[in-house]
Design a protein around this nucleic acid. Structure first.
Lengths: 113, 113
DNA sequence: TATTGACTTAGAGCAAACTCTAGGTGTTAT
DNA sequence: ATAACACCTAGAGTTTGCTCTAAGTCAATA
């Protein structure tokens, strides 16, 4: 797949995708001989994963670290698992914040009726 | 209450509190004769409200608009209500995103076991 | 009385995450 | 063959939301 196809499929700009690769968030997108990116299934799965994590507000720096550990191979499995656990508890915190805000919003909206 | 007390109570820096007032996020903090802020109950409730909304990721610009409508008085009640409804649906979206990411994280963590 | 400390302001600086610009290459359509 | 188009890069610019700096006022304390 070309970058424009991937861009449409995942609703990310081409600039964003190139940026993600440049900073090491996206590992090894294969290229055709003339240097043009040719996204295979693995590259697409990475994009989907990153998009999902970013949608939940996970920091790019953390994701870069995860990708980095992944690149280092099997001996980083434990570290990767821990990273994900940490992010999970951050997400739980975020959920809590949002729930509080939800309650408050619902209360306020009720008052306006 | 002085700004340092409010800062401690709500765990916001003094700079942030002053910034919020400067940009119109925080309405009318009363001042003593020499110009020093003297937070009353209403100012504190605003701070708490803003902090709660910001914790959930609500944009400052939106909150400024809300405060602005509030300042304009009772004839903006309908508009304020609508603004809150809009933010509520944004929060619902965010909850959905986070839930998706949660599922994915849990799945991945399970794989690492 | 002098200095310490809490407050004030305007405005500059900073970090994160893009987003845009300029200039270049390579393939395809007329 | 020349123009159009999709791609490429490096690097500058933008937005959001603070955070810091410099310079000043005022009250209290050594």
């Amino acid at each position: 797949m070309t970058i424009s196809e991937v861009s449409q499929k995942y609703n990310l700009t081409q600039d964003t995708i190139r940026y993600y690769e440049k900073i090491g968030l996206l590992p090894k997108v294969p290229r055709s001989k003339n240097g043009i990116r040719n996204f295979d299934d693995e590259a697409c799965r990475w994009i989907e994963f990153i998009k999902c994590m970013r949608n939940a507000g996970m920091e790019i720096e953390i994701l870069i670290k995860y990708v980095d550990l992944f690149k280092q191979g099997e001996n980083t499995v434990k570290e990767r698992r821990q990273l994900l656990e940490e992010q999970k508890s951050k997400l739980l915190e975020k959920q809590k914040s949002i729930n509080e805000t939800m309650d408050r919003l619902n209360y306020k909206i009720k008052l306006y009726d």
